[in-house]
Simulated assay, not measured.
Amino acid sequence: MEWLTAPFEVAFVQRALWGGILVSAICALAGTWVVLRGMAFLGDAMSHGLLPGVALAALFGGNLMVGAVASAAVMTAGVTALGRARRLSRDTGIGLLFVGMLSLGVIIVSRSQSFAVDLTGFLFGDVLAVRGQDLAVLGVALCVALLVSALGHRAFLALTFDARKARTLGLRPRLAHAVLLGLLGLAIVASFRIVGTLLVLGLLIAPPAAALPWARGVRGVMVGAALLGAAATFGGLLLSWHLGTAAGATVSALAVSLFFLSHLASGVRHRRTSRAADNAAPAPAPVLEVDRSTSEAMS
């Protein structure tokens, strides 16, 4: 069992594990709504939209997290504003913001001669570099995400399944959508230091999508996603330690693998259930046959 426990006896791997668990919980709260509402493209756009703020912060020696928060706020405001345009589809607006923010970030990066290493960390993350203060920030972010999810659960639920009903119930769907974008931005900002913006969708989408076939409600999806994300973090760090692979990418790849395994198992279960239901189906009652022949004779 030493191969299972030895990596987690090292302090920086322990911090990486706790950081991944906290990120998995945050991503489970936001990612569940992303999966249910089909907002994967929006999540991808918002994750790449952090680049200008992070690039500016690095260029001027500021805090990368503050820069990421600023970019996330700009993306949230932009998506909300463009979503109200009647003649512009939401996907078009998101795509334009995506390209615009990414282009701006690359322009800023091109002005720096020593940003290549930081850019690699931004894109792919560095879970093994998690510090104690990062864990404290993630803990605060998780508390905020829990509070927003609890207060906005009813509005998010109505917005997901029937936006018109949400409006008639006075739940203010536009405000709920903006708050949901803020929750998504919080999850992405909290995650990019761990797995990077290119891999954040692995923890944001794969665990909720994997938990979806087995859960009976939205809260069940969230709990299942958090557990699957934590399992992917543990397994990814373990594999990374023994195989010498990139830790963040291994965690993300394992999360995606769990999604495919979950849906494969769900398909097998569905086929078995269908066969059992077909075998247990009662034979047609003789009375019905008599009634049918009688009705034909009478006609």
Results as ranks from 00 to 15, higher is better:
residue 190 A to V: 02
residue 52 P to W: 04
residue 265 A to P: 06
residue 122 F to K: 01
residue 192 F to T: 03
residue 3 W to H: 11
residue 162 D to N: 15
residue 80 T to S: 13
residue 59 L to W: 12
residue 200 V to C: 05
residue 98 F to I: 09
residue 241 W to T: 07
residue 228 L to Y: 03
residue 57 A to N: 05
residue 175 L to N: 07
residue 29 L to N: 04
residue 232 A to H: 04
residue 238 L to H: 02
residue 212 L to N: 02
residue 234 F to C: 10
residue 63 N to C: 07
residue 265 A to I: 07
residue 95 G to I: 02
residue 149 S to W: 02
residue 105 G to Q: 05
residue 187 A to V: 03
residue 184 L to H: 03
residue 108 I to G: 08
residue 88 L to A: 11
residue 189 V to M: 01
residue 92 T to P: 03
residue 197 T to R: 03
residue 118 D to G: 07
residue 111 R to Q: 09
residue 4 L to E: 03
residue 195 V to Y: 07
residue 105 G to Y: 02
residue 181 L to G: 00
residue 199 L to E: 01
residue 41 F to Q: 06
residue 91 D to M: 11
residue 220 G to Q: 07
residue 279 N to W: 15
residue 72 A to C: 12
residue 289 E to C: 10
residue 122 F to Q: 01
residue 226 A to W: 08
residue 9 E to H: 10
residue 92 T to K: 05
residue 264 L to V: 13
residue 298 M to I: 08
residue 204 L to C: 06
residue 282 P to C: 14
residue 261 L to G: 14
residue 205 I to T: 01
residue 203 L to A: 03
residue 286 P to L: 12
residue 242 H to I: 07
residue 117 V to N: 13
residue 117 V to Q: 14
residue 126 D to G: 15
residue 116 A to S: 14
residue 288 L to S: 12
residue 189 V to S: 00
residue 244 G to A: 10
residue 173 P to W: 07
residue 108 I to F: 06
residue 287 V to Y: 13
residue 139 G to Q: 06
residue 221 V to R: 00
residue 225 A to W: 11
residue 89 S to M: 12
residue 232 A to R: 03
residue 216 R to Y: 07
residue 116 A to N: 10
residue 67 G to S: 06
residue 95 G to H: 08
residue 51 L to E: 03
residue 285 A to N: 12
residue 198 L to H: 00
residue 107 I to R: 03
residue 150 A to L: 15
residue 268 V to E: 10
residue 199 L to V: 02
residue 219 R to M: 05
residue 74 V to H: 05
residue 19 G to R: 04
residue 118 D to M: 14
residue 17 L to R: 04
residue 199 L to Y: 04
residue 83 G to C: 13
residue 192 F to S: 00
residue 149 S to D: 02
residue 72 A to D: 06
residue 60 F to Q: 10
residue 270 H to V: 09
residue 6 A to E: 15
residue 263 H to I: 14
residue 214 W to K: 03
residue 263 H to K: 04
residue 257 S to F: 15
residue 241 W to K: 12
residue 57 A to W: 00
residue 216 R to G: 13
residue 191 S to L: 04
residue 104 L to F: 12
residue 177 H to S: 13
residue 73 A to D: 13
residue 145 A to L: 04
residue 133 Q to K: 09
residue 225 A to G: 09
residue 51 L to F: 10
residue 50 L to S: 05
residue 30 A to L: 06
residue 114 S to G: 08
residue 135 L to C: 05
residue 39 M to I: 11
residue 50 L to E: 08
residue 272 R to W: 14
residue 165 K to S: 12
residue 273 T to H: 13
